[in-house]
Amino acid sequence: MKAEYEKLIENVTNDDNKNYSVAELLDRLMKDDSWEPDPMRRMKTIISLKIKFDNA
């Protein structure tokens, strides 16, 4: 990653969020059947949720 991009990433990173990635949270959500037992529906929901990140 170029240094100027590292600088941009630093601007959105703080002590609270520096130890996890969004991808890790989504992986965890995919494996978590407490909110939705059907794995297919979990997958479809997460795809829809990710699309919403574009405009949130």
Binding site: D16, A23, A56
Partner: peptide, 15 residues
């Protein structure tokens, strides 16, 4: 990674 953390308040919070 970058765009969600830049824009979505929840991704500024602890894990």
């Amino acid at each position: 990674e970058y765009w969600p953390k830049r824009n979505i308040p929840v991704f500024q919070k602890p894990e």
